[in-house]
Amino acid sequence: MAHKIGKQTIIIDSPVGVFSAAAVGSKKEGEGPLGKSFDIINEDSRFGEKTWEKAESKMQELASWKALHKVGLEMKDIDFIFAGDLLNQCIASAFSARGSKVPYIGLYGACSTFAEGCGLSAVFADSFAKNCLAIASSHFCSAERQYRFPLEYGGQRPPSAQWTATAAGAALISREAGPPYIKAVTFGTVEDLGINDQNNMGAAMAPSAAATLSQFFKDTYTDAEDYDLILTGDLGAVGSVLMRDLMAREGFSLGENYNDCGLMLYDREKQQVESGASGCGCSAAVISGHIFPKIASGELKNVLAISTGALMSPTSVQQGETIPGVAHLVCYSSEKGGIF
């Protein structure tokens, strides 16, 4: 059974791991540096559907189907689905789970959803569940029309802006599975240092990532050097610089082993995405498609994945509220034995 140490960290005791995972993306994601790590790339970002919202649901369905298919499981073998996205009332997730007949636990953690889902799946799988499915998605077009402007509206994006990834990731987290094994989970606190610029989400989210990561280090008596890779979700170019600064202030220095999924998904210069990628699908797809295989093969041993979410809504932004952030951490390892 999982138990808590320190202030916030949950240690997963039984061997719970990622049984299978899949990443789905579209044209722009396929053309990026990680294009080959996607399981499914559909050039048509409508995924054959009539609306962008339906397209996003379809991506989730494809991702979970692919993850199950890889290990020969079916929906009836799944105990719980933890899913979330960026759309109002999380319709992409709810609608994609509609046909599954699996208990559905809808999550809203903005772009932190994938880590939130993986973390909860691990805690469930450590106690009474056998197989849990964690899914997260985002779609550039459905996000633009909800949060910003119509697609055909002509506007310039400031250098701190980020590009919502059209991507979905699904991870099947099971007891007696792995590598990658899930060793610990730290659910984060909501942090707000007063950023109110919707075009600078990286800066809005960096404090929450730093808060969660430094708390994890304190709870586990470990330091940045103990991990092969520390990966934030979608802080982008601006946020990841701030992340290093904030961690330094807390007394932890992040070295070469620190990276950000938002900096990895696209070629920032060539693909004109300014500060990098964002969206629930960003960390979900990068971790599912690119990082899990590396942990499974042993190329990476101990990895901390911290997905970061900005918890604003179009209403709160218009009302002049600042943008709070939240970040959840999952500690993966290629080895079965305990590390704490």
């Binding site: 044209k27 409508r46 550039f140 077009c141 119509p150 697609l151 055909e152």
Partner: peptide, 11 residues
Amino acid sequence: IAALLFDPKDK
């Protein structure tokens, strides 16, 4: 008229 004739495209 434009809305009748055209659909928004992905970017």
